[in-house]
Amino acid sequence: MSVLHTVNKSPFDRNNLDSCLNHAQPGDAILLIEDAVFAAMAGTAVAGKMADAAKTFRLHVLGPDLKARGFDPAGVVTGVTVVDYGGFVELAAQNKAINAWL
């Protein structure tokens, strides 16, 4: 059974997202929350990396954290699913463990 990985740091500040992508297994779910949500937006320096990652992992971003920071959930990289806190709960329930990349 797959794992849910959460990432909460901006990819422009720390290596948490890279470390997560380097360890997650194909088919795992990854959820970007808090300051990691910037990685989900199209047009950034990491958008290509995210589009590639979407082929291997189930990528998600927390909508409330995007909106809080002034970003439109409609503008995320193709392949990234926007979820609310209820969706976060469902992801945690559907995967066997939650690995927080702090």
Binding site: N8, I33, E34, P64, D84, Y85, G86, F88, V89, E90, A92, A93, L102
Partner: peptide, 26 residues
């Protein structure tokens, strides 16, 4: 919850998660 209130969003995120989990009947 590993961080204190106000300095970091962690506690707020945890609270929103807990609230959503309870609303879903967990």
């Amino acid at each position: 919850v590993n961080e204190g209130p106000y300095n970091h969003q962690a506690s707020d995120s945890a609270y929103q998660f807990a609230k959503a989990a309870l609303e879903k009947g967990h």
